[in-house]
């Protein structure tokens, strides 16, 4: 399952849970009860929520940061230098081998661009920003052979949407 699908399913579940709570509050609002017991119940839920967020959510967030693309080290990667221009990409290598790490050295010759790698199914598989004066190093392993596309993901002017390159 892709990261996108996992993210969407988890988000949907959490949003539906909140919607269920809001609907329950709406359905029961016509009943009048003293506020004190309602408040005590809310404080109990708040305490449980707080400790869940601190003891489960926070360590999970810290742990997830380990899966960052900044410190990826690959032995003998294929290197591709990519430069963004208004409104095209210049890649110094036209073909890479699937299954082996590729290090993209991404920069821009003019304004800020976004270097987004899309697979044949149109799914975004990795990205980094392309900035003038900086080289962002993105290491990615293409799992399957095919023609991948580079789409610009940062608004860079009128023809931003046409800034597409191919990596066979």
């Amino acid at each position: 399952m892709s990261v996108q699908t996992v993210s969407a399913v988890l988000s949907l579940l959490a949003i539906l849970s909140l919607a269920a709570v809001a609907l329950r509050v709406r359905a029961l609002a016509h009943e009048r009860r003293d506020y004190a017991p309602v408040q005590i119940g809310a404080y109990r839920i708040r305490a449980i929520g707080f400790w869940l967020l601190v003891l489960v959510g926070l360590p999970t967030s810290v742990w997830l940061f380990r899966a960052n693309p900044y410190t990826v080290q690959a032995a003998a990667p294929q290197v591709v230098n990519a430069t963004g221009y208004q409104w095209y990409w210049e890649l110094d290598t036209s073909q890479v081998t699937a299954g082996r790490p590729v290090k993209f050295r991404v920069t821009s010759a003019d304004v800020n661009h976004g270097f987004g790698l899309y697979d044949e199914a149109g799914t975004l598989v990795a990205q980094t920003q392309a900035m003038p004066g900086y080289i962002n190093r993105l290491t990615h392993v293409f799992e399957a052979p095919g023609t991948y596309r580079v789409l610009c993901l940062e608004y860079c002017g009128l023809v931003h949407h046409n800034m597409i390159a191919e990596i066979p």
């Binding site: 993210s7 959490a14 949003i15 909140l18 997830l64 960052n68 976004g114």
Partner: peptide
């Protein structure tokens, strides 16, 4: 509801591993 629910996809997107494939989408 809108504020609380909106926090969910916001926090998801602020996770680097997710942001790598969902930022600027």
């Amino acid at each position: 509801f809108g504020w609380m629910a909106g926090v969910v996809p916001a926090v998801v997107d602020a996770t680097v591993a997710v942001n790598l494939v969902m930022d600027n989408t």
